[in-house]
């Protein structure tokens, strides 16, 4: 079952490709979001246990059975943090893109010549 990891890596590589090659600012932001999805999904895939249940203990459930069956909760907790931070990053990038559009009248990164230091 290594195929599923390989597909996740392909998604990551598509994100990298978009960030480096595309010239439209909105496309770059979308590629960043795809990169974010791929990394989060990879963490959850690593923590998955076969026929696993969610790490939420129901009332009356046997504890030993719960410990044996539950998926790994630690990557899920970290990914929960990471998703919210990704939203913050997206908001900031979109704000900067809107400001740049107001200044230059385009989303094309090659036309923003005044940014060169």
């Amino acid at each position: 079952m290594m195929l599923i990891y390989v597909l996740c890596m392909i998604l990551f590589a598509i994100g990298i490709y978009g960030i480096v090659v595309k010239k439209n600012l909105v496309k770059i932001i979308i590629s960043f979001c795809i990169l974010d999805y791929a990394v989060n999904l990879f963490f959850i895939l690593i923590g998955y246990k076969k026929d696993g249940i969610a790490p939420i203990m129901m009332p009356g459930q046997d504890k030993a059975q719960f410990v044996a069956q539950t998926v790994d909760p630690l990557p899920q907790a970290l990914v929960l943090t990471s998703i919210v931070i990704g939203l913050g990053i997206t908001i900031l990038m979109v704000a900067i893109a809107i400001r740049l559009y107001d200044k230059y009248g385009t989303f094309d990164v090659m036309k923003m010549r005044k940014l060169k230091g």
């Binding site: 932001i29 979308i30 998955y48 539950t70």
Partner: peptide, 21 residues
């Protein structure tokens, strides 16, 4: 994959970022 909390968060965040984009 057995992560309902993450799925709820992802759906909310996804909707918000789509609106913003």
């Amino acid at each position: 994959l057995g992560a309902p909390d993450i799925a709820i968060t992802q759906m909310a965040v996804e909707t918000l970022s789509l609106v913003i984009l």
